[in-house]
């Protein structure tokens, strides 16, 4: 037990479990004691969450949001990989660098343009989301490509690989685990954007619309419940992507665990 306050201390599984449960209880207790009339108490939220979890309303909206996110991420990954792989060609390098800088553009300014370019609310949301995610994906992936050790390329050279073969081996095959890792790390950003984007076109529903509706009626209990659901879904995806990575690419399990 005393290890938990020691720098780089290691704790066994049971201690870890006890510690986490303790921390959760403390947090709930803190919440319970500090919340006044306006902020709902944990028990109230718990009840609302329970009711919400058994409602069609929640699940229908979750499915809409998850489908939209997954679709946007899949397309974003394809776009990212295309430009990042080719970024080793000088012509595409500048384009990739430009995409990276697009992080600084806010989505809000593009709604009008995208509304003109797209046919309906679904398309609008999808394109906004993709446009929002791609710069982050490209940023992360370029960082991975740039940090490639020189020796990986040199090993290919000594084996007599052509430049295209080297690109395939080192950047495409060799970085496959990093693609999973980037999707995983940036999932949080996509998940953050979904609630934003869904606000722009409420017609199709989605968990973001639900959140906005409850917010409008000052239904704080349900707002917090939905926040918890969103949080848990995020954790679930994080876990799923981590598991899929090791499943498809067994060697990735030897790497140290990222945050």
């Amino acid at each position: 037990m005393k290890h938990i306050f020691r720098p780089f201390g290691r704790v066994d599984r049971t201690t870890l479990a006890i510690m986490i449960v303790g921390q959760i209880i403390l947090a709930l207790l803190f919440w319970h004691l500090t919340s006044n009339g306006l902020i709902p108490k944990p028990l109230q939220v718990g009840k609302a969450l329970g009711a919400l979890l058994f409602s069609r309303l929640l699940w229908d909206n979750i499915i809409i949001s998850v489908l939209l996110t997954v679709k946007a991420m899949a397309i974003a990954v394809i776009i990212t990989l295309f430009f990042s792989y080719l970024s080793v060609l000088p012509f595409f390098h500048t384009i990739a660098r430009f995409l990276v800088k697009c992080r600084y553009l806010t989505l809000t300014g593009f709604i009008f343009i995208f509304t003109l370019l797209t046919q309906n609310g679904g398309q609008l949301k999808l394109s906004l989301l993709i446009f929002g995610i791609v710069p982050f994906f490209v940023t992360s992936f370029l960082a991975v490509i740039i940090s490639t050790e020189r020796q990986q390329y040199e090993l290919c050279k000594t084996l007599g690989y052509t430049n295209w073969e080297t690109l395939y081996e080192v950047v495409i095959v060799g970085k496959a685990d990093q693609v999973f890792e980037i999707v995983r790390q940036n999932f949080a950003i996509s998940w953050l954007m979904i609630t934003l984007v869904e606000g722009y076109s409420m017609g199709e529903g989605g968990i973001g619309t639900l959140l906005i509706k409850y917010n409008k009626y000052n239904d704080l209990t349900n707002v917090i419940s939905i926040q918890i659901v969103i949080f848990l879904l995020g954790l679930l995806f994080d876990y799923l992507l981590g598991t899929l990575k090791v499943w498809f690419l067994p060697y990735s399990k030897f790497e140290s665990q990222p945050l």
Partner: peptide
């Protein structure tokens, strides 16, 4: 030129993903 010689690097570099 590179490829004319077998080269064993100091840290025994291999493709970590293979």
């Amino acid at each position: 030129k590179a490829g004319d010689m077998g080269v064993v690097f100091q840290n025994y570099y291999l493709f970590e993903w293979r």
